[in-house]
Every structure is written in structure tokens, then in C-alpha cells.
Design a protein around this nucleic acid. Sequence first.
DNA 1: TTTGGTGTGGTCTGGA
DNA 2: TCCAGACCACACC
Length: 871
Amino acid sequence: MRGKSPTKGKNVCVKAFLIDADYVLENGIPVVRLWCKLPNGKNLVAFDRKFEPYFYVEPKSIPKRDIEELRQRIRNLELEGKKPTRIEILEKKYLGLPVTVLKIFCESPADVPKFRDMLKEWKDVKDEYEYGVSFYRRYLIDNSLIPMDWIEIHGRYVDTQLAVDSAMEASEITPLKNANSAPKLRILAFDLEIAEEDGQEKIIMVSFMDNSGFSKVITYKKVHHPDTEVLPGEKELLERMEQIIQERNPDIIAGYNTDRYDFLRLQERADHHKLHPHYGRDKSHLVFRKRMRISSAQIAGRVHVDLYDFIENILGPNLMTEILTLDRVAREILGEGKHKVKWKDIEKAWKSGKGLEGIIEYCRRDSELTLLLAEHLLPQISELCRITGQTLFDTSRMSYSQLVEWLYIRRAFSLGELSPNRPKYQEVQKRRLYPAYTGGHVETPKEGIHDNIALFDFHSLYPSITITHNVSPETLDCMCCRSKSEHAKEGGTADRRRLQTPSIEGATFKQQPEPEEKNTVPDDSGHWYCSEHEGFIPKIIKELMEKRNEVKKEMKKLRPGSEKYKALDSRQHSLKILANASYGYYAYPGSRWYSRVCAQSITAWGRFYIKKVIELARSLNYEVIYGDTDSLFLKVKSRPDACHFLTKANDTLPGVMELEFRDLYHSGIFVSTKTGQAAKKRYALIDEEGKITIRGFEKVRRDWSNIAKDTQERVLLAVLRDHSPEKAAQIVRNTIDDLRSGRIEMDDLIIYSQITRPLSKYQQMGPHVLAAKKALERGKTIGEGSSISYIITKGSGSISERAEPSEDAKNYDPEYYIHNQVIPAALRVLSGLGYTEESLLSGEKTEQKGLDKFLKKGNGHSHRRTGRRGE
DNA sequence: TTTGGTGTGGTCTGGA
DNA sequence: TCCAGACCACACC
């Protein structure tokens, strides 16, 4: 593998797939290393020595002489005997305005922040920029290179000590557009098992699995099992692990929670045995790269992907599961979970040496699920890499705001814009204190059961507003549109003339508002946005949306389920994620492109358009059942009727704004709050196939027990599908019986909740807090951000005092689960149908209003309160 | 270092 | 003992 490379010395041009980028210092000079995969599956590393670290300084005074003087003084700065290598004066833009800056080059990346610190207090320096962009990122951005995409390397082959098939000294590296799909990368998943022995937490077992059929478990107690190696002890196990990684030579090492757990344990135990394992493709050891709260384990030449980070940051909010354990996440995403083994059983088996086979299989299974998850998620993460231009290592660990930020920074560079600096801590704190501004509009629903509900929603409401109204910090209150006549506040946009113009790839975008009209925010702020010049952020969002439309169009030509189709699907999904996150990024206090006004304007237009569409529906005699921010529920006669409305609505919408028809539902229920108002954000719909969609109800909340959630779902189904409230009531009564007679599994009584702050910071001792405290006392690690599961047990005292961590709970309090879980959840649906707690408990058929009485007839305008109780 | 606002509902807490 | 309000979590979009 190592040593001689082919055609050494000759100049060649190689097409390669970029997996990772980093740099090393040679004699104080940075050498960028691009870790690549060749089309033939071989690994290659390319060195680039030509790129210099730099940052920008904006002088306070503009006169050329002053700038030249400043440049001289910076040129003479001295830091440990080193000076800036050179300084350029150039024109850039900052938030759309031209600005003259000094571009200061240094010898080593570490010099950048140091020189910046030296001159930041100077009175003729206005500001410094982009000093915080790390060197390898700078390199990728400035060279337009995209990780997880193809590049072209010009240069010559050289010898190398690195564990790669070949190495090149690059003379030029360029991106390669429209190349083939990704080559097959080798992914190795691993998992550790830990047990206490001789008062120490030892690593007792490691499993590996890769995507070319390799599977192995290593341990050090006598056991015979397929693909299992028995080693003399922990030290040898750690050495063997290093060896296996080097032999299998993966491009990607995948784990689950490996940043926070596995690699830390590995490091500890390696230290204990005075080992210095290296897992990478050079001689370096494991590096923990500091991030804000936790650090990430980085391995040279391979990409360590901790799937947990990606799931927690990006996927998590969209998952059903209450907790993000490997088991639950795998069950939800892959449809299969872990082997059932208790933590204590592992230790027991280890100590006794009996039943180790089961532990081996358990451990192997963890690696297998991790591998499967990796294969499933890596295409998605890779797409995000391609959009943001960041490495797989970084992208897989990014939050939404960071994804948006890096996309903007990269585009800023290519458009000649300086990126605003990250706000200082003080500034962030200040921003946090601003009062909330008005968000989306929620139309009060029509309580009751309705049939033939058509659901419409705006296609990417906030992104399309950003584009259509050019909402960007530099276009805000521009001088060029200042004197334009105000257009009429009411209906001004409704009859605005528009043109249909085909844009790239046939995707149609309606034209921008007519330039002579002032693009004024429909609130009382008086703000407007430029109608002449496209803003920086609208431009980026537009690119995302156009790209997404192209991809979706491409997808239509393909068979759903095919590899290509799936690849495009993750691409369009990633584009959507980025576009949708752009609004939140405006309002995020840590944002570089922070603009409350922009965020406020976007929501103002959002309210404007949803209200407008609601009014239109009413004027056309449609019954408006509900609407929330960007969605609209109408009672319609038929599918064509729904489409008829859709056409009408879209005729009134400007720019890229578009209402879409989602689905037609057979019926749906909208319930009341406990105070008798119609409840917003809580409803259930059933489609023509009998499939139910539940929103907001306890059923979809993780802080309710399964017994309450399942009962509620069955109640909803009985009401909506079987039209039988009485059946629903019977379901509740049966559940109550089961609870009283102890026929319910403890698992169904678990309530999950998040600990959102340090336990000491709680002012109010809720059940989850006290349960967490108990768990803490019993040696569990519980802190900010952890999830706690508890059960309310029998006994005296408050509910909170009787909350026991679920694994310790010996009994449950049936009365709590009946009165505080099952009945409230069921009543949420049934109270509108005349049932009360008493009627559910007694089993009597009380004077319920039949379903038919409750069913809304077409024009039921009476806004009924719960006054019916007294009739 | 965790994109935003809107909304419902449970449990606790402290004063009447 | 009752009740309003604070606190808290988590849903919807």
C-alpha cells in the first residue's frame, strides 16, 4: 500500500472524490491535505502547499494615504519573530455596500487570530473580518471545492508514508461539475461494551462491521463464537482494535454517540495502559476537536461520523420516538431494533463468564444497526455537505443555524461579500432580551366533526416570501425605492399585473412585483425592501428553491425507490431544510446575518397572505375550518371543487408564492380547550383509506404515558372511523378496568420528559425533576439535556414525590393513571360528545348527544361554546 | 451555543 | 381547601 506511487514525477490530471480536508504544518508552513477516493476505489491524498492563511482588516479612514500608512504598520507587526507575509488592498462588499479592506496574509493559520488580536484595538482599524474561518475551510471555500463531490487534481505523484494507495503534490485543484455519483466508500461501524471489574470501568468487548461484509467481535474472556477473537486482556484488545481499523482501512468510521462516549472511554483506557493508538491514515493520534460543549473525535484521513449528532440536531425533531437511543432510532428509521439485553446482564455475564455468547450477539447487533443507519443517513448528510460546502466530519455535527451560516459564508465569498462576524457574547445576550415579535396567524378552528376537508398549504411560505419580497438586510429601506409611491394597503397585490415567465429548466417563476410599486411590509412598521436589486439572501434562497424544483422535476422521470431516485430525494430534502431554516436564522441571536426586522417582515407577509386566502375562501362561500401560519382547511364538495379554489387563490398570489393542495380528508375532528374555546393546533383527520393523522393531541406527545396515548388513539378511531362514541367510551372503561386490576405493563405507564437545565436551577419541583434527582442519587448520570423516564407509584405525598425513575418503579398508582392520564386524554375527544369523567367512570350511558347532533352540517355558523352542558 | 413565534395543558406554589 | 398564576414541557407551523 505505502511507498512507490505509479508514474512518479510525471505531471498528471486525476479525477477524485473529495472525502475530507485537513492540514499539517511543515516547517511552520501549512500543507493542505485532501483525502480522496478514486473512481477505481483506491485512496489518494493530494497535498497543496500554495494556499496562504489570511484575514481582512477594514480601515477607519478611506484616504489612500492613510490606508497605505496602515498597511505599512501592519506589515511591520512582529509576532514571535514573524511578520505578515504580504498585504493586499482590495474592494469588497459588506452587506451590499462597497468597502476597501486590507487582506493580510500570514505564514501559519495560528498567526491569523494572533495578528488580529494585535491590531483589533487600533484606533484607525474599524473592524476585522473572517479571522475565525479555519484554514482548511478557507481553503475549500476559496478554491470552490466541495466535499463529497468530485474534484480534478493536476500535479505529480509522490512517495508518502501515509496509509493511502497514492499521493500527489498538486499544482492545481479544481471542482468537477456534473460528475458521476459517489464512489463506494468503505464504512466501518463499531461499538464498545463496558463493564466494571476490579473497581474500574473496562472495555470488555468491541464489535465491528463494515459494508463489505466484514464482521468481528473481540473480547478477552474464554468463549467460542463465530467471528469472535479472544485476546489475553484489555490492553491487547485495544491494540487489536487499532490493528483491525488499519487492516479494514475504512474511509468512514461510524458510531452512535461515539463523540461523547466511546472515543472518550477508548482514550481513558488507552492512557491507562500507556498506549497511543492511531486509527488514522497518518501517524497522528486521536484528536479531540473542541466544540462548544462537547468535543469530537477526529481521525486523520478517515471521517469519524457520530450519527447521534446528526440525529439529535437535524433528524430528531422529526422523529416520533421519545428518546434518541440507538434502539428506538433504528426501529423508527430502519424498522428493526437492538437485541434485548439489560445493562446489568452484561456485567453479570462478564463476571460469571456464562452467557457471553448473548452479549457478543448483542454487541455485534449494535454495530450492525449503526452500519445500517450510516448507510441510510450518509447520503443525506453528504447532500448537506454539497450544499454547504463543508466537510462530512463538520456537516454531520452541525445544527440548522450552522448549516445556513456556512452556506451563506461560501456564497458570500463567491459574490465578493465579506461575511459579518459572529456576534460577541454581549451582543447575543442583548439580542436575547428583545421581546418576541409577532409570528404566524392561527385561525380559530370550527369546533366539532366535519367531513370533506380539503387541506391546502403554501409551498415553502417563508422562503417564497423572502424571494418574492426580496427580504434581506441590504435591501431593507433602500434609498433607491425610498420615494416610490405607496401602493394601496388593501388588495394592492391582488390585482397586480403579473407575467408568467419560464425560468431555467422550465421551472416557472412569476415575475417580481412591478418595480414602480413600493415593496412595503404589510404591517405598521413602514419598512420596505428594494424592488431593483436582488438581495444577498433572497438570491441564495432562490437558488435553493430553483435547484429543488429542478431536482423534483428530475425525480418525476424516475422510478420511485430506485437508487437514483433516493439520491435525488435526499438532495431535494436537504435543499428544503436549508431554505426553511433561513427564516429562523434571521431571528437567531447567534446569527451573523441577524435581522429582526427581516424576520418580522417575513411573518408579517405570512400573516397577510394566509389571511388573504382565508378571506378569498369566505368570499367564495367556502367554510373555513382552520388555518395555521401557512395552512388552510376548507370544507369542499369534491376534489375538483378543491382544485377550483386552488386556482382562484393562486391567481391572486404574486412572485413565487404558491398555494398547494395537500389532500382531501373524509372527516376530521376539532376539539375544545378545557376553558371551552375551540382548541388551536389540536385535531385529527381521517383520509379516504381510513388512515388517521393526529396533531397536537396527547397521542403525539412524549410526556404522556402509552396507556393514555393508545387509549386516546383508539377513541379517535372509534369516533372518526366507526362513528361510535359509545364504542370509544367502552374502550376507556375497559382500560380503566385493566389499570385497576393491574393488567397493564409497566412499560406502558412510563412518562418521558426532558431535563432542560441543571437540576439546581429548577424553581418548581415537577415530577420529572424529582424523578431525576432520585436517579442522580442512585448513581445515574443525569444532567442538562438528558431525558428522564418515570412512573407514578402508589403511596402518599404529591404526584412529584411519587414519581420514580422507571427502572426502579416497583408498582404504579392506578388512580393517577386513570384520573390524570387516561380520562383526560379520552375526554379531550369525548367531552365534545357529551361524555364526562363521571359518565366514563360509572359506565352508565348518560344523556350523550349522539354523534349526529354534533356533526356539523354544511352551513353551521353558530360558534358554539360549551354552554350545552346546561341544556 | 439551541434558527423563530403560537398555543395547550399539567403540576406546583403560595395566598386567601 | 381552593384557586389563580407561575413554571415547565412539548406540540404545531
